[in-house]
Design a protein around this nucleic acid. Structure first.
Length: 467
RNA sequence: GGCCCGUUCGUCUAUCGGUUAGGACACCAGGUUUUCAACCUGGGAAGAGGGGUUCAACUCCCCUACGGGCUGCCA
């Protein structure tokens, strides 16, 4: 049983997406479950919009979860009850120190250029001396000895208890802190494996104390390194895309994204390009590296290119339409869908992203009269138009197959004493309005005899009328 | 400041004491070609620095440097 527990304070960060993916791969690869819990105990920063964005991001990545999305805040009474139970057990105590007092303590330490953990004067105070004032519930943490985190990624990490303060479990307004809530929820929900960013590694020590205080079983920890930008610094907005949805809008296929993210910071021998099914088979905590990985868009694109060419045509068309929808572009018309489906086979090997795929398939998305770019117009000179004109006649009656077309076109080129390349340029200009387009045979096959002839005739006439 | 984690080609990484340090992306050169892309062949490219331990260290230990994280009534 794993879980993904993002805090709803913004979009789904690419690093969060990878964390979710690792949880998902680990659990689903061995018949386990994945839970989704929104860590919204910080009422000021949590928003429903952010929650929705996170769900959209996960869904796009193709990651599903078991059961309902859990709101951590909904369990606040249970968290508070646990805090009070710790109080009753003596593993926690009431602290009446005000935030001002604590701030003053820290300021003083800083002035001396030192750092000291805050030690509450109420830790061992006689309850008879408790004032009638707001209080927080603090964990009565051990002050000597070490806490050892047995981590699947980081190994055994030993942290001196003297480094850790008595963390607050219940705020003075009765709302639980993340530190308490996360432990209670993970325990209550039956989470056995906690796979999360290594920014939580130090926190794990304190959280472990809560498990101990309550006599609960400590989960398997796996703290994975964060993702960095191309410059090796922590990934932030100045690096460009950090939100998962931005990648969707740039037109990367979800399968390619999964593949790339899986390989970022994880490896299994020389496996590079693999399906999600294969990833589920291979994925293991052992393969996760300990160093932070940098984002490399070139490799992302390459990976996505492989996945686009691996995809089934119909699935690709579906995803392409979803891409158009999220980017606010006009949807495909029925005829465009039909033609595109036929054309995908000859363009999917050459595209790394959906915008590229759309660009390569430009010839089926346009309709007559076909707009031409300058290069296309230039390649339609008088000689070329004459050949197109003659081809219009020759193409009327023949088997519409590649070998037949090949015979006709190469014959036309040699008969007119020009290279096939030149003829192909004219044909591309006629069929696609561009000189950069797929193979002329593929285009003719996809467009069919009638449309091909119409386009050739149109090109020949247009050029003639121009003089 | 304290504590924790990290450091193999430009990048992602393999290696789990003995390898000509392997693969992928990127890059360069050549080839193929019907444009673009793809593809094929070849090439350059790495163990942060310094000490140990060992017959032998990228691999184990220590120090330094650099990077990151934590140090909140944030998560």
């Amino acid at each position: 049983m794993t879980r993904f527990a993002p805090s709803p304070t913004g979009y789904l960060h690419i690093g969060g997406g990878r964390t979710a993916l690792f949880n998902w791969l680990y659990a689903r690869g061995r018949g386990g479950k994945v839970l989704l819990r929104i860590e919204d105990t910080d009422r000021d920063r949590s928003t429903p919009e952010a929650s929705a964005a996170i769900l959209r991001g996960l869904t796009w990545l193709g990651l599903d979860w078991d059961g309902d999305v859990v709101s951590q805040f909904d369990s606040k009474d249970r968290h508070a009850a646990v805090a009070h139970e710790m109080l009753a057990r003596g593993t926690a105590y009431k602290c009446f120190s005000t935030q001002g007092e604590i701030a003053a303590f820290r300021a003083e330490a800083e002035a001396r250029n030192t750092y000291a953990v805050f030690q509450s004067p109420w830790r061992d105070a006689d309850p008879a001396t408790y004032p009638d004032a707001p209080y927080v519930i603090r964990m009565r943490a051990p002050r000597s000895g070490d806490t050892v985190i047995d981590d699947k990624v980081q190994g055994q990490v030993r942290i001196a208890n003297a480094q850790l303060d008595d963390m607050i479990c219940l705020r003075s307004d009765g709302i639980p802190t993340y530190m308490l809530a996360v432990v209670v929820d993970d325990h209550d929900m039956g989470v056995t494996h906690v796979i999360r960013g290594d920014d939580h590694l130090n926190n794990a020590a304190r959280q472990q104390m809560v498990y101990d205080a309550m006599g609960w079983r400590i989960p398997v920890w796996a703290h994975i390194p964060l993702i960095h930008g191309p410059d090796g610094k922590k990934l932030s907005k100045r690096h460009g895309a950090v939100g998962v949805e931005e990648y969707q809008k740039m037109g990367y296929p979800a399968a390619g994204m999964r593949n790339y993210l899986t390989r970022l910071g994880w490896a299994h021998l020389d496996a590079e390009i693999f399906t999600t099914e294969a990833a589920l088979q291979m994925f293991d905590l052992e393969g996760i590296g300990r160093a932070p990985a940098r984002l490399d868009f070139k490799k992302l694109e390459n990976t996505c290119g492989h996945h686009i060419s691996m995809s089934a045509d119909a699935a690709l068309l579906h995803e392409l339409q979803a891409f158009l929808a999220v980017t606010g572009k006009p949807p495909l018309t029925e005829p465009q869908q039909d033609l595109l489906l036929k054309a995908i086979y000859c363009v999917k090997d050459r595209a790394k992203t959906f915008p590229e795929l759309l660009d390569k398939a430009h010839f089926v998305l346009v309709s007559r009269p076909i707009a031409r770019d300058d290069a296309a117009t230039n390649s339609l000179d008088a000689a070329a138009c004459a050949i197109l004109q003659s081809l219009v006649l020759q193409l009327q009656n023949l088997h519409w197959t590649k070998p037949e077309l090949e015979m006709i076109l190469t014959a036309a080129a040699t008969a007119n004493g020009i290279g096939f390349g030149k003829l192909a340029a004219a044909l591309r200009a006629a069929l696609a309005g561009r000189t950069i387009a797929p193979s002329v045979y593929d285009m003719m096959l996809v467009l069919g005899r009638d449309e091909t002839i119409e386009r050739l005739a149109e090109a020949a006439n247009t050029a003639q009328s121009l003089g």
